[in-house]
Design a protein around this nucleic acid. Structure first.
Lengths: 330, 330
DNA sequence: TTGTAAGCGTTATCAT
DNA sequence: ATGATAACGCTTACAA
């Protein structure tokens, strides 16, 4: 069954396409009986307007792009869900891509979205596509960074106080008396990783501890790198007595690693940046930085609507919205 | 910076729009020097073709719709990620909606997708929109059901052998000697819930056990209903000695409930339909039906491509692909 | 090898 | 209150 066009509806209802359009968009005047007749014909022919044509004509798509590094991470999905929920109320829809934390896939996704004339882009970027992101801006598309900064891109951003929170988390370990701490870092270049590392350093310095006394593990925010860290740290002659993991997936991996190694899960005092959903089930000796992905999502959605629908003053100031997460001890 | 149109590029390169189009699409003949000149101009003007216009003209959007009931459930997200990965290789993109297991939101999403002329729809439906789904089919859009059936909709479907797997899981509990089992059911009307319930009944009948001797809890596949089940079951004068939970979220909730009630996590022998990512960390007395969302995603993606690109024989047979999950004991 | 122009399905302006 | 009709930005016969 081919799709019916507005022209065919017009013919069937013996009115002009303009009238059909007016009825369907509730724009302009149309007499009640004609309106009824049109509506009836629309129903009979099961007419469904072609949004592609409408988008071309109106030069708006009601689509917002969303690019995230991993849709299996509940943190990002809670965030995504919140955005979607809020935008859908205003009849905006999401073109969603999982970049897999891969710069080239991210580029492809941005290009696709550009060609499809998304009206705004929300992205937790891998950090290497500053040029593309600037292009987005130059084309007048509101760009909203979430979770991570991108060097040389200046725009709205919604982000944790990564440094501060990491510092507090590590301080907590130090206050409990730990002097040798395993630090599981994320990939350099990702702003969250860098800032959290800075926070760690701050905490050490303030406590008069030595950088070199810690065990530094450089991971990639993945589960498997957390696992690997566990393996390495248990093998040390003098293993750390506590661990600070800079993201939730690595923390998860750390526990998986301990389990595989036959060690008890409370082998270390652990502090984690980011929550583990299942932590309440078993954890003791665990503290975590409680992020609020829903808040980020909500703020992002509001900002999108503001920027899209907003006034036409060309230069709006870009906002940096910083969230201060709590630290939760189990 | 307004978007440049093909016309402007043509002017700047002093050729016709047709030539630009030919260069960019590598279609038809164009001399090498003109080609170079065009490419250069395209670069200089930073021209980016308008996919909306192209889609209208070509009558294809390269978009596939995906509707899932909950993007926070890792099961669905693993599935979604796999679909996306495979489709993106063939330059297809995903229009993704979280229906929140809500029929009316699902309707809205389907309508939106219909208007936006998606080329195929993959959906784990709530079950109440058979009419809409049939409309999708009638419009010639390949429809692929995953995970759940929808009554009166006949099309490709990729699905677990829910009944068989549930039966085996319950048999396992019975074989271990359990005679009073708590059964955590999902919402009636959702095919997975219904089929798993059937599987349970089969297992009971085959073992000569009495329906009425079990504790039946009717939940909604959510974490909180699992929690509530734990509360009710521990309050019984004669609590069950084992539990079969018909989905992963309820199993999670069950454990959360136990924890809140101050009970040990191995209070019950548990069998769960669907995996808990963190189960390896603590679980004993847990068996689970190991689903394979990646396989479902992969199969769905392949089917989409086959249906879209496939030959034009109008009537292709619809396939029912049934996966047989293993049961894993921890 | 290149250009002209019709048309994709809408919306919106201008007549009437 | 309604109808013609010119766009929107592209692709693709068809001409040249």
């Amino acid at each position: 069954m081919r799709n019916v066009t507005i022209k065919e509806v017009a013919q069937a209802a013996s009115v002009s396409t303009a009238t059909i359009s007016r009825v369907l968009n509730k724009s302009g005047y149309v007499s009640e009986d004609v309106r009824q007749r049109v509506l009836e014909t629309v129903r009979q022919l099961n007419y469904r307007p072609n949004a592609v044509a409408r988008n071309l004509k109106r030069d708006r798509t009601h689509c917002v792009g969303l690019i995230l590094p991993d849709m299996r991470n509940p943190y990002f999905m809670r965030l995504a869900r919140e955005i979607q929920a809020l935008l859908s109320v205003r009849n905006y829809h999401i073109l969603y891509t999982d970049s897999g934390a891969d710069a080239s896939r991210e580029r492809i996704a941005i290009n696709f979205m550009l060609e499809n004339r998304i009206e705004a882009l929300v992205i937790a970027g891998v950090g290497e596509n500053a040029d593309k992101l600037r292009e987005v801006q130059e084309r007048g598309i509101p760009l909203i960074l979430i979770d991570r900064r991108v060097e040389d891109v200046h725009t709205d951003i919604i982000i944790d106080d990564n440094k501060g929170a990491a510092e507090r988390a590590v301080k907590l370990l130090i206050d409990k008396g730990h002097r040798k701490i395993g630090i599981l870092c994320g990939p350099e270049g990702i702003s969250t990783a860098d800032e959290r590392r800075e926070g760690v350093l701050n905490a050490l310095v303030r406590a008069g501890l030595n950088y070199a006394d810690m065990f530094w593990y450089s991971g990639d925010f993945s589960r498997s790198s957390g696992r690997e860290a566990a393996r390495q740290m248990t093998r040390l002659l003098e293993p750390p007595t506590a661990v600070f993991s800079t993201n939730n997936e690595m923390t998860f991996g750390l526990y998986l690693g301990l389990k595989e190694l036959g060690q008890p899960l409370d082998f270390w005092e652990v502090a984690s940046y980011g929550e583990l959903e299942f932590a309440p089930l078993f954890a003791n000796r665990l503290a975590y930085v409680k992020q609020n992905p829903e808040a980020i999502g909500r703020t992002a959605a509001e900002l999108v609507l503001e920027r899209i629908g907003g006034s036409d003053r060309e230069e709006q100031c870009s906002e940096q919205i910083m969230l201060t997460p709590d630290i939760v001890c189990m």
